[in-house]
Amino acid sequence: MSIGNSPEDDRPSVEDDGPSIGRVLQQARVGAGLTVDEVSTSTRVRIPIVHAIEEDDFSCSGGDVYARGHIRMLARAVGLDPDPLIERYDAEHGGRPAPTPAAPLFEAERIRPERRRPNWTAAMVAAIVAVVGFAGFTLFSDGESEGGGNTVAEGAAPETKKPTTPTTKPADPKPDPSDSAIAALPKDKVTVKLSATGDKSWISAKSHNGKLLFDGLLLKGETKTFQDDERVDLILGNAGAIELFVNGKKVKDEFEMGGVERLSYTKGDPEVG
């Protein structure tokens, strides 16, 4: 009688023999009676990307961050819990990347701007020019006062009798720059401005009638502006990297890096959208 391990211990686990991520999503979609077009419409994930993911090809997603977001949205659309699929994706693709330490970034920002040294030569030249100019003006004024003192005295006397009421109207205060920018926007449209400040982000923007305004990557430092008569619908991949302005006002929502956000905005303040 053998005391060693049972042959059953050498069999692969159920997870190793189970269907792949794409196969699981495809089977769940078919079981739910949904087509690829219907899933693409409900998730805003493009049809080629849905087909590629169901074939376990994640190269069209544009990176691990976007691949996780696509898996999460597709799983929810077909009624699956996305967390096991995300964990399996991380296990098959080297795990979730470790966050970049914040301290070196801040140190780099402090070191980057180098304060300029004062230009003493230019300051000395400016001081000399000012002294020479003042001296010349003083000599010129003294010469005029000696040669035509009587004329100046006679002309100055009548002027003292004139009323001193101001004749110029004080200038109106200038409006705040931000208020001027908001006032310049059309009141009958909704205006949405997106800026990728922290990192690149995948953006999808549609008008109120479903017309695609933009669908692609917004690289770091780039800005896109969209307008519509009624509403602008957005999907933000890696939403934490986006700075968002709606109708000239900054949206103060704090989005997470790597997160996916669906947003809609209409005319008026950001709270209206």
Rank of each mutant, 00 (worst) to 15 (best):
L263W: 00
R96Y: 06
S145L: 10
R23P: 11
G259D: 03
V65F: 00
G198L: 04
Q27V: 15
I49Y: 02
E87T: 07
G62M: 03
T168H: 06
R88F: 00
D269Y: 04
P158S: 04
T41V: 11
V131E: 05
V36T: 14
E159Q: 11
A135F: 11
G79H: 05
D90W: 10
E256T: 05
G216V: 06
K224P: 05
V125S: 04
S178C: 00
E261V: 12
I235Q: 03
Q27N: 15
G63A: 03
G79D: 06
R262I: 01
V131D: 03
A156F: 06
R112A: 14
P84C: 07
M73E: 10
E87L: 11
N150S: 14
A122P: 01
P166V: 12
L234D: 02
T151C: 08
H208V: 08
A157V: 12
I71R: 02
G155F: 11
G216Y: 04
G94A: 09
G95V: 09
R23T: 15
S207V: 09
I3K: 14
I53S: 05
I86L: 13
S20M: 12
S141N: 12
R72A: 10
D176H: 04
I21C: 08
A123E: 13
P101A: 13
P82Y: 01
V246S: 02
P173Y: 01
D10P: 02
S61R: 10
L218N: 05
E109D: 07
G259L: 00
I47W: 07
L212W: 04
Q27C: 09
K220I: 08
S178I: 05
T167N: 06
K249Q: 11
D199E: 08
E230I: 13
E144S: 11
T138C: 07
E92Q: 14
A103C: 14
P166F: 12
R262Y: 01
R46C: 06
Y66E: 07
T197I: 12
D9A: 15
I111T: 14
Y265Q: 02
S6V: 06
D142E: 13
F255Q: 00
I242S: 00
K174T: 13
D179W: 01
R29N: 10
T41N: 12
S42D: 13
V125H: 03
R116A: 14
I128G: 09
K224T: 05
A130H: 05
R231T: 09
V24Y: 07
I47S: 10
N150D: 14
G94T: 12
R68D: 00
